[in-house]
């Protein structure tokens, strides 16, 4: 079942279109930055954008900061919202379930497929941003060694290439976990409606509400429990020492949302009357 879902994911052109769009945004920003050499004022603009002008090796982190708040969650919500509802709209859900396929297994397969998409999209953004960063901003080789130059952390301490790779791996893992809760919201809504668009819009409505409340002082009491509260905590991987507090809380809250919503999706889908 999982193999079937993965094959379907990579067979569909939309997977590559969405990934291409995700990669395009950092590329466009890099072209403007490299052409004008005008960085955002200190403390303003996207994270790491000021730093990349002197070292392109940090551009993958800047690219993550660009796609993370809006583009990536929208992509995940669209795909996850379509996961079950899309099958129902197309009339294939009934045929899918006629085969000896458990509904729980189908849900798990859909979720695995979404995880793979998120990983695929993030790795694509990181690789294209790394190539773009080195090509457009350059990287001074350290002492004649043909390795990428060291980069400076937010704390002013040098990060070696190996350290940078580790921190990027941590970033990828954290963003995947963060996007899983988006996927879980959309997947749950996808099990209660036949409209993939409606499920995606519902998930986005939840995220927008969360973003608004996260900036509201009056909502300080609920802020730690909002799904988007710790989304940008991956930036803390680039401090020295790494600031684990928000990363741990962010991962924890995402796992709670993931568990609760998957359970709700399971409860809704297992006894759902698939009529069309």
């Amino acid at each position: 079942m999982i193999t079937v879902e993965l094959a379907k994911l990579f067979r569909r052109p939309r997977t590559y279109v969405i990934t291409g769009l995700l990669c395009a945004l950092p590329f466009i920003v890099a072209v403007f930055l490299a052409t004008t050499r005008v960085p955002p004022p200190p403390g303003q603009g996207g994270a790491f954008l000021s730093a990349v002008l002197s070292n392109g090796a940090l551009y993958p982190a800047a690219a993550m900061a660009l796609v993370m708040p809006v583009f990536l969650p929208v992509s995940v919500a669209v795909l996850a919202g379509d996961a079950v509802a899309g099958e129902a709209t197309a009339g294939t859900l009934r045929y899918l379930l006629v085969r000896p396929v458990g509904r729980t297994r189908l849900l798990v397969a859909k979720l695995v497929s979404l995880v793979v998409f998120v990983l695929f999209a993030i790795v694509a953004v990181l690789v294209t941003a790394y190539v773009t960063g080195l090509a457009l901003f350059g990287s001074e080789p350290s002492a004649g060694v043909a390795l990428p130059a060291d980069v400076t952390s937010l704390s002013g301490v040098t990060i070696t290439p190996a350290g940078l790779a580790l921190r990027m791996a941590g970033t990828v893992a954290y963003i995947v976990i963060s996007m899983l809760s988006v996927a879980a919201i959309a997947l749950f809504l996808s099990t209660v409606t036949d409209s993939g668009l409606g499920a995606a819009m519902g998930a986005l409505a939840v995220l927008v509400t969360s973003q608004v409340l996260a900036t509201l002082d009056a909502a300080a009491a609920v802020r730690p429990y909002l799904p988007t509260r710790y989304w940008l905590a991956w930036i803390d991987f680039f401090r020295d020492p790494v600031l684990w507090r928000d990363i741990e809380r962010g991962a924890g809250i995402q796992l709670v949302y993931l568990g609760a919503l998957l359970l709700a999706a399971w409860a809704a889908f297992v006894t759902r009357d698939v009529a069309n």
Binding site: P42, G43, G46, A47, F48, L154, S155, G156, I235
Partner: peptide, 22 residues
């Protein structure tokens, strides 16, 4: 958010690191 200002006390001198300005 994506920056920090660090203050070190080293003996009788202080060192300030402003990440935004590098």
């Amino acid at each position: 958010g994506a920056g920090e200002t660090d203050l070190y006390q080293v003996g009788d001198a202080q060192v300030v690191w402003e990440s935004a300005a590098g």
